[in-house]
Design a protein around this nucleic acid. Structure first.
Lengths: 340, 340
DNA sequence: TCGGAACGGTAGAGCGCTTAACCGGTCCCT
DNA sequence: AGGGACCGGTTAAGCGCTCTACCGTTCCGA
């Protein structure tokens, strides 16, 4: 390992001067700068990240904390992870993964002083991790939202507008009986999990606003259950002609269930995925239209909000809702004629 | 931040003694140990990871290098990432994500001295990153294999045995015309990408060994292309009654293509996925049987091999092939009677 | 002519920890 | 009784870098 000391010796300057050149932190004459840079090039110098961090009290490392195992990360979440790593690298930061489940674990990790800031994924309505980080004074950004995110930095999917877009699309096609397919709200520690709660609330409010009647079906997050949910829905509400489906994992089973019950897609029933991963549209069979979740944007914007906060403590509080994008794929169509 | 100095002062011992207690690196009398531990508890001491790393020349951080964007990470690869992070944490290491594409980039990162070792994902047949890491003397483990991995630490899917298991299963069901569906070998920088090459080689060898005739269909990695591949296969080789499909993304399209061509699954044609993600079986519609890739095992074993190498430099060279596990899901059945 | 910016550079004190070297008692063996 | 081994502990020299305080020149305006 080539140290600054060696570079300084070769360039005939002091250690400090090399540091100033490397960090551009104090003016250095062109001639000296050139000599130093030449020396660095000759020696193949690379500053030691660790020493720099120890001396400057800033590690330029960001942690991404996600609950491991509890509920396996979906494709959207994984998109967040990889894009976040990319964005961090672009900004000269490193991203470390913290698969931590408990507040105590998080506390342990934060205490080590390894990171400048934390990105929190899979945020719940009353997330104890938020309190911890505030208490410890560690800068953080939520990818998601607590029930009351006032004063917190966050980046989240705009579920409200996604529901609106979905309803616009379906109602625009003439549908008046639009149901909502949801994951179950109280599954273990995910009780109060934001996306489900927010989507349901938005749906109920907006459907009533439009003078329609809300119909909500719940289903565990797997295809078999999705299939059953379709049967249940059709039995209880045979008049439904369109469905918004937040539950990505149940989506395909649900669609098949409709087919199994003799409904054709999209002629009898339109189905629109909500905040799904891109794969749900691209790789799906049968093809499904959906409002695709902005996984990559969440990762990127989350990191950027974090870095901004770190580099300029007085930066404005980022509170950003990212919309889903509508990808049509032949699973929605005009509502069947009333008499059908 | 509470430092060891403060703990030492409160416990009435020297800094070094605290260090010995914390690391259990030198015997300390029970009484002294107790006093130190009490002091640590009182003060809420947590050792500074960075200072420790700087002083000990070991960071206890492992990098996971994966090519970003090039070819988006599939579900299996992402399983590797999350499990690796978990396994690292269990061993007291941190995992940082390096979305690096070029050797130069990797060189830059490695030069920073941030990490003790590197895990390389998406390894190609002649991977220049391997040479770099060897030149730089950085310990590393491959998740995958180069063409000639002699002398390298690696953990990879056992494609050879997966093919064997697949053929055993299908031949055991009476099939004698078993085709192989593959991704395209020369897609950009992935030329020489191991899995495809190895699977094809294993298939050709084993099929001949069993006295059968090899039939290989290639298809880009997406469902639409998979559908087309099915049509092509049936036209060129109408007698085929079973298919091994490595190309996960094309798999469902392929299955639909078979159906579209009037073949019933599994009565007319059996299809068996090869090294797919668990989702391909669990969430698929129609259901597909497959030899599921051991993503989590790869991540875990990769990290463990790395940590072992780091902690005991004389540890044996880990060269491990992890088998796929057969998950049946009604897409394979006895071969149709010869006369059919 | 002289005081004082402005400029370019250096010296050196840490950052919080690890670890080699050392030190003074005990204990035991001969 | 003398000497070595051992035990529990301390001292202090770094690890490679950042950054404040300081120092000598030059230049300029009054």
């Amino acid at each position: 390992m080539v140290t600054m000391q060696e570079v300084a010796a070769r360039a005939g300057v002091s250690l400090a001067t090399v540091s100033f050149v490397v960090n551009d932190s104090k003016p250095v004459s062109a001639a000296t700068r050139a000599r130093v840079e030449q020396a660095m090039a000759d020696l193949g110098f690379r500053r030691n990240v660790l020493a720099r961090a120890l001396a400057s009290q800033r590690t330029r490392i960001i942690a991404l904390a996600f609950p491991a195992l509890e509920h396996k990360l979906g494709t959207t979440a994984l998109n967040v992870v990889t894009t976040a790593a990319l964005a961090a690298n672009e900004r000269g930061f490193n991203l470390v993964l913290w698969p931590v489940n408990t507040v105590e674990q998080l506390d342990d990790y934060v205490g080590g002083g390894l990171v400048d800031g934390v990105l929190l994924m899979e945020v719940t309505a009353e997330d104890p991790r938020v309190d911890l980080l505030q208490r410890r004074g560690v800068p953080f950004v939520l990818v998601g939202r607590t029930a009351d995110p006032a004063g917190l930095r966050y980046v989240d999917i705009d579920f409200e507008s996604a529901v609106a877009d979905g309803l616009d699309h379906l109602v625009g096609l003439g549908h008046t009986r639009v149901a909502l397919l949801l994951g179950e709200l109280h599954s273990g520690s995910l009780s109060g999990y934001g996306p489900i709660a927010r989507t349901e609330a938005a749906y109920r409010a907006q459907v009533l606003e439009r003078g329609l009647e809300p119909v909500v079906v719940r289903s565990p997050q797997d295809p078999r259950s999705g299939r059953e949910a379709a049967a249940r829905l059709l039995e209880a509400h045979p008049g439904v002609t369109a469905v918004l489906a937040l539950n990505e994992d149940a989506l395909h089973g649900f669609v098949n269930g409709l087919a199994a019950s003799g409904r054709t897609l999209p002629d009898d029933v339109s189905v629109l995925g909500l905040a799904t991963s891109p794969d749900a549209v691209t790789n799906a069979d049968p093809a499904v239209s959906a409002l695709v979740a902005p996984g990559p944007e969440l990762g990127r914007r989350g990191v950027e909000a974090m870095v901004d906060a770190l580099e300029a403590p007085e930066a404005p509080l980022v509170q950003e809702l990212v919309p889903c994008t509508l990808h049509l794929n032949h699973s929605t169509a005009a509502a069947p004629a009333a008499g059908a």
